[in-house]
Amino acid sequence: MSDVVDPVVVVRNLTVSVPHDSGSIAVLDGAELTVNSGSRLGLVGESGSGKSMLCRAILGTLHRHDARVSGGTIHIQGRDASFFNDSDWHRLRGTVLGYVSQASLAGLNPTLTVRRHLVHAARAVMALDTRSAERCALEAIEMVELPRANRILDEYPSQLSGGMRQRVVIASALLQRPKLLVADEPTTALDVTVQKSIMDLLVRLTTSLGMSLVLVTHDLALVEEYTNEVVVLYAGATVEAGRTGDVLNDPRHPYTQALQSSRLRLGDKKLTSGMWLPGAPPQPGEWPQGCRFTPRCPHAQDVCSSGGQPRLEAVLSVRRTACIRSEEVFGT
């Protein structure tokens, strides 16, 4: 792993729990993530994988969902987040950590013009007079490449298309030029042409702002197209991590392999039986013993269901996998 540049976020062996009945249930257990400066990382997971919880853990918003860290570590810019109090997190959000998601689109107040929304957002985090805040808002709109910025500022969200609204949301997340932008399924509800333009924008912004991007998605095609590193999450644990091209072309975990095989591609015609996995990913509270992928894994053997969820181990120079049989299954 290249540690030459200081990683922005390092998550190690993270356990996150939520209360349930009279006790608690782990929704993440064995989650690992490293976001290097300037990299674009794909966080891949399906339902029940815990990918949204992992985002909340990094952003310090777990408590809003009744969840808490019950094991492992999170380091933001080298500092241990378990010592953060509310005001520490508050300072980080916006200046270091930015967030954009599907829900953010609904968060655009329909009674506020774009200008008021951005000015309000700017003044909430920075001590600015009106004129500076307005300038800040204008710069933000231009940064997300919305044409005729002055006109856009006076529009209401309902007058804008889905793609334009998403750009406004991105603009408000980038007001303080954070070091890391976490984008949680930012393009799910958007048409494919709009998706491309938003993703292209995000890629350009990572270069121009020297910003890292965590793209949370279940769509491997997006990961392939727009990220250079990838972390695969299954049932609350990281099962594989490495460079995107390597992982997708030469996976070292049966789940990654299955995900890649299940992709429907333009140009392929046939649906083959290897294209889907039986069953469904286990939900928190229903995780099986041993490796959580065992019930659906085509390569599972007895050894896989003993012990706990395997940890990530290095297999190739910059690849880590949690499959204890990876050498037998995939070769060296």
Binding site: H20, V27, S47, G50, H65, D66
Partner: peptide, 8 residues
């Protein structure tokens, strides 16, 4: 507790 509800 979205996680316990298939996300719903």
């Amino acid at each position: 507790m979205a996680a316990l509800n298939n996300g719903r």
